[in-house]
Design a protein around this nucleic acid. Structure first.
Lengths: 204, 204
DNA sequence: GTCTATACACCGATAGAC
DNA sequence: GTCTATCGGTGTATAGAC
């Protein structure tokens, strides 16, 4: 009686192939656009035929779903990295959080579309992949509460403001900074509205 | 020698059919979603076959394009209607403008997707159809300038804020009012930031 | 002149041989 | 597990019926 091996080489191999598929999918999405991703294209780049992908993912949407989960999970890691640097000043911390999310969104159009827009017809993230997105939001909510922003409506206002700036930047000035350079001002506007300490800069 | 008739019955008929196609396309988009629109479906509902539509529109995207133009042109009419009611109070006028645009966007999901999002892969509005959208923006810019908001960045901030609220409402609480009820507060926040007269309501 | 039938290339997905 | 073959769907091009 030899018992079960510690490592399951088969599932390890399976996982490696899944990762390879996802990596290739991201690559194509960045090159050609998220919607232009095709199974035949993904398969060809890794030396397979399209139907073989169904051994690793149940459908094309399942691939999108895994990508969605990856994108949000990776952003959780980004949040972990910046958390220690969050200043004691509420405004500075708000600005860092906003800037970090803004930059992550703007850095990869395809990823941003998948994470924050409904650009793939019929795609709805599974609860499993949605979980990290919820956690990002929840961490943001907690962090803002810590900074003195406890009102639920205020948090909704903050996310809408941030999302609006990201969207405007991506849609109307991709690659530029027309809305990016308004980000700090927007956060100050929000902070002023809530009466957070420090700064009172206004426009003429 | 009879000269050219005053009315061109042929182009009249052609125009009528074009309108019928667009009307049907809107109907399907509202029923099934903008992306689920198919030429075969449109054609079937008006008693045609799909290829026949090519006598009236050069492509499917040309249909989307015409719809895009219609949506923005109709909003111009909405602006005409509310313009006389715009109060002398800058804040009240801002709120009316914001609320009007918000309601128009939220009233028809498919229309909003077409007007304000890039949800159709590969669709880019033609200059011709883009014109009314530009005019809406330009009128908004002029109106805000009249109210004392002359800074270009401030106008960009306003559009981003408004767009963010609309987007959040549609994406996260369709049919509800979680972000709709923040609209007046958001406008006040913006107005406060710019130092516009009247009101100073704050959150705790 | 309008509309249709046909066809093409491409897509996601499935069935079954190996 | 990967393949070939195929299905039903799409947008679209074109030849020709009436």
């Amino acid at each position: 009686m030899l018992g079960k091996p510690v490592r399951d080489r088969k599932t390890e191999r399976q996982q490696a192939t899944r990762s390879e598929i996802l990596e290739t999918a991201w690559e194509i999405a960045r090159e050609k656009g998220l919607a232009e991703l095709t199974l035949r294209d993904v398969a060809a780049r890794i030396g397979m035929r399209a139907p073989s992908l169904y051994s690793y993912f149940a459908s094309k949407n399942a691939i999108y779903d895994a990508m969605y989960g990856q994108a949000w999970t990776r952003y959780l890691a980004v949040m972990d990295a910046i958390e220690p640097t969050l200043s004691r000043s509420p405004r500075a911390a708000l600005k860092t959080m906003a800037r970090t999310f803004f930059d992550y969104a703007v850095a990869d159009l395809a990823r941003h579309q998948l994470m924050n827009q409904r650009t793939i017809p019929g795609f709805v993230p599974s609860p499993e992949s949605y979980a990290p997105a919820v956690e990002v939001l929840e961490r943001g909510r907690v962090e803002l509460a810590r900074l003195g922003v406890q009102d639920a409506g205020a948090f909704d206002l903050f996310t809408a403001l941030l999302g609006g700036l990201i969207n405007a930047q991506q849609a109307n000035d991709p690659g530029g900074d027309r809305w990016a350079r308004l980000l700090d001002e927007a956060v100050d506007m929000f902070a002023d509205h809530l009466g957070l300490p420090e700064s009172t800069r206004r426009r003429a």
